[in-house]
Design a protein around this nucleic acid. Structure first.
Lengths: 161, 161
DNA sequence: TTCCCTGCAAAGGATTTGCATACAA
DNA sequence: TTGTATGCAAATCCTTTGCAGGGAA
């Protein structure tokens, strides 16, 4: 699924305004042949304006009552799943009603390579690695929030010297 | 709900055989006017023989195919909810299908009061306290696994001296 | 024009509920 | 006998899916 690697080689969002955020989002997704849509933008905007987790229903309410945007719940679910595949949102399941809630990832996760000689830090992201870590969490009945992984070694330049 | 406090004043299970476990369970529940039933016993036995979490469906399969016990899924759900209220089982929600899974608590949770003078440790359990802690976890989007609470102070005897 | 995006309604799966019956005390 | 426990089927809730129509490139 090509949707999975939109951010692979890219830096995360760190802009403070939604416009910057959205521009960045469009640039990245365009590379994968994904089209823009006003509904997706609205949904991103709703997520962007909220610091905590929102359910599909809550997003539906915000869009309808506050912004008078006509969008179906089914579409909201589709877009949220789409964002999840893009790794743009993180999710949690709530007790006791097992509602799934979504929150925007304002910065894209990445791991680090650190050179023990020159100290250079290189960022990287590997979807498979992330998936395996998720599976390990599941196997051990953990609910993960985040992680950091730093691979220590020597960079190409320092190996040569 | 009187079902909530079956274990309040009691020590946890620590017996190694199911028979001891079940005898203890019956003794405790009988005090609350709860009747015995072969289905509940079967369900407890199934949970007892498994170290990890089981879903209602998995328990259903075990009881039907391995033990040839005729029990409906609805009843399994009812009994599991009953056990949950009794605080006999702990639960988790699994990704991505939001299956609820159940595991037997082999020891009953309790907190501690520790006297700073004589060092006596007194065990206690408070349902409301537990509930509030659950709410705090929910508010902060935490999935709690366990906790320990120790209240430090002076016991009645040491206060007098 | 092409093909992705959206809406609607129906389907889906896990869990709960209502009610009649079975069973423990 | 009395009230609890169970079974069955229908209902419920959140979420997904199929398909036709709408919209971006």
């Amino acid at each position: 699924m090509s949707q999975n690697n939109v951010y692979t080689q890219e830096e995360g969002f760190s802009s403070s305004s939604f416009e910057n955020f959205y521009t960045h989002f469009v640039q990245l997704t365009a590379q994968s042949g994904i089209r823009t849509s006003s509904k997706r933008e609205s949904l991103l905007r709703a997520l962007y304006s909220c610091e905590s987790y929102l359910s599909a229903e809550e997003i539906y309410q915000v869009l309808h009552t506050e912004h008078h945007i006509r969008i179906s719940l089914a579409t909201i679910y589709k877009i949220l799943t789409f964002f999840e595949n893009l790794d743009v949102v993180s999710t949690v399941l709530t007790f006791p009603h097992k509602l799934k809630k979504y929150k925007l990832k304002r910065a894209v996760h990445h791991d680090h390579l650190l050179c023990l000689k020159c100290g250079t830090i290189t960022r990287f992201y590997d979807a498979t690695l992330e998936k395996i870590q998720e599976e390990i969490l599941t196997t051990h009945h953990f609910k993960g929030t985040h992680h950091t992984l730093t691979l220590y070694g020597f960079c190409e330049k320092c190996q040569d010297e």
